Every structure is written in structure tokens, then in C-alpha cells.
Simulated assay, not measured.
Amino acid sequence: MPAIEKICVFCGSSEGNDQAIIDAAVRLGETFAKREITLVYGAAKIGVMGIIAKATLDAGGKVTGVIPGFLKKKEVVHLGLTQLITTDNMHERKLRMHELSDGFIAMPGGIGTLEELFEILTWLQLGLHTKPIGLLNINGFYNDLLQLLETMVRKGFVSMENYELLLVGTTIDGLLEKMSQFKAPPIPHWLTEERT
């Protein structure tokens, strides 16, 4: 696949209470800057989101933030980004982040992070894009989620092929390597132009 130059990161607008996650966010931002990968994210200056953005910028990297107008408050939006894009709503925000990015990484976060992860994963499953999706499983944060997905496979609700679309890593370098080697499966035969 082509080189990954821009990665969208889904993560928490809270910092949580696990220092390992905060440290990983800093390392991810530094790694992006070192590898000249532009960070695309939700434009907040708070939580894990803000930590990654600050680390990327502090290390000389580029950051593009995408935020809907109703969230664009002084205490939330990061005003020091390389590029700031304002959208009309959440749906447009997610579509814009998808368009801007060559791949996606989900770090620890809350309900919004899961919603973003599973929407972009569903789009890949449906053949609406061919970009790699990584799950950075810091300190076992996503172990229970992965166990649930395995149960879905065993119970016949998720195919093994679709389960394997989600690239899981416990280290940043390892996950980025998996993403660089990713090859999207062919579009499902049951999908036609009329259905998409």
C-alpha cells in the first residue's frame, strides 16, 4: 500500500487515571513527528487528545484538527494546530477525518472513541475504504473488548476475516509496522453499486 503520511487518532477527551496511557500518548506524538506522519484528530486541547497533539507539535510535527462548530469553545479547541478545520456537525467531522487520513489508530478512550473506531471499521468491512485500522492496546486496556469480539466470532456474528481487519498492537512501532503491511480484502461479493 502507499506510504502512510497522515494518521487519524481516536482517543479520549479525558486523561483517565493510567499513567501508562498518558506516556503512550506522548510517545505516539513524538513518533509521528519523527516519522513525519501528520496527526489528524478531533482538535481538542484536553485529555489524551490534547496530550498527543502537544507531543506531536513539541517534537516539530504537523497536526490537523477537525471539530464541529458547537464544540469550538476556547476551553476545548486547540488553537495552536498546524491546521484547524471546522465542520457543521459530528457526522461531517468524521467524514472529513476519514478523507484526510491514510490510516487510523484507536487509543484508550470512552464511548466516543469506540463509536469512531467501530464506524470506520464497519466502513472497511463494507469496502467503503481500504485504509488500515489499528488498536493500540496499552496496558491491557482493550483486552475485554477483544474478548467480546472473539465471542462474536464464536457465536457467528463476526467472520474471522472481519475480525482480522482490526490490527492490534501493544507497541507503537509494532502497530505501525502492521499498518504499513496491511492489504484490504476484496469488496464483499454481496455488495453491489446499488447497495452502497
Score class of each variant (00 low, 15 high):
Met1His: 09
Ala3Pro: 08
Ile4Val: 15
Ile4Glu: 10
Glu5Tyr: 01
Lys6Met: 09
Ile7Thr: 03
Ile7Trp: 01
Ile7Asp: 00
Cys8Gly: 02
Phe10Trp: 12
Phe10Ser: 10
Ser14Asp: 14
Asn17Cys: 02
Ala20Ser: 12
Ile21His: 13
Ala24Ser: 12
Ala24Arg: 03
Ala24Phe: 00
Ala24Ile: 00
Ala24His: 01
Val26Phe: 08
Leu28Glu: 10
Gly29Glu: 14
Thr31Cys: 13
Ala33Arg: 01
Ala33Asp: 03
Lys34Phe: 02
Lys34Glu: 14
Arg35Thr: 00
Glu36His: 14
Glu36Asn: 14
Thr38Arg: 13
Thr38Asp: 03
Tyr41Leu: 03
Tyr41Phe: 15
Ala43Tyr: 06
Ala43Cys: 10
Ala44Thr: 13
Ala44Ile: 08
Lys45Cys: 13
Lys45Tyr: 06
Gly47Ser: 14
Gly47Trp: 09
Val48Gly: 06
Met49Phe: 06
Met49Glu: 05
Lys54Val: 01
Thr56Met: 02
Leu57Phe: 00
Asp58Trp: 01
Asp58Asn: 13
Gly61Lys: 00
Lys62Ile: 02
Lys62Glu: 15
Lys62Thr: 04
Val63Asn: 00
Ile67Ser: 08
Gly69Asn: 13
Gly69Phe: 07
Phe70His: 11
Phe70Gly: 05
Leu71Ser: 08
Leu71Gln: 07
Lys73Arg: 11
Glu75Gln: 14
Glu75Met: 15
Glu75Cys: 04
Val76Gln: 09
Val77Pro: 01
Leu79Arg: 13
Gly80Lys: 13
Thr82Gln: 10
Thr82Ile: 10
Gln83Asn: 15
Thr86Trp: 06
Arg96Lys: 15
Arg96Cys: 10
Met97Gln: 14
His98Ala: 15
Ser101His: 04
Gly103Thr: 06
Phe104Gln: 11
Phe104Gly: 07
Ala106Glu: 11
Ala106Thr: 11
Ala106Leu: 10
Met107Cys: 09
Gly110Tyr: 06
Ile111Pro: 02
Ile111Gly: 00
Gly112Ser: 10
Gly112Asn: 09
Thr113Val: 09
Leu114Glu: 08
Leu117Met: 04
Leu117Ser: 06
Phe118Gly: 01
Gln125Asn: 06
Gly127Gln: 02
Gly127Tyr: 01
Leu128Ala: 02
Leu128Asn: 04
His129Arg: 05
His129Asn: 11
Pro132Glu: 05
Ile133Leu: 11
Leu136Thr: 02
Ile138Gly: 02
Ile138Glu: 05
Phe141Asp: 08
Asn143Asp: 15
Leu145Lys: 00
Leu146Asp: 09
Leu146Ile: 15
Leu146Cys: 10
Leu149His: 04
Leu149Asp: 07
Glu150Gly: 13
Glu150Trp: 08
Thr151Glu: 11
Met152Val: 04
Arg154Glu: 15
Gly156Thr: 04
Val158Cys: 11
Met160Cys: 01
Met160Pro: 01
Asn162Leu: 00
Asn162Arg: 02
Tyr163Trp: 12
Glu164Ala: 07
Val168Glu: 13
Val168Met: 12
Asp173Pro: 07
Asp173Ala: 12
Leu175His: 10
Leu175Phe: 13
Leu176Glu: 00
Leu176Asp: 03
Glu177Cys: 03
Ser180Gly: 11
Pro185Lys: 14
Trp190Ser: 11
Trp190Gly: 06
Glu193Leu: 12
Glu194Arg: 14
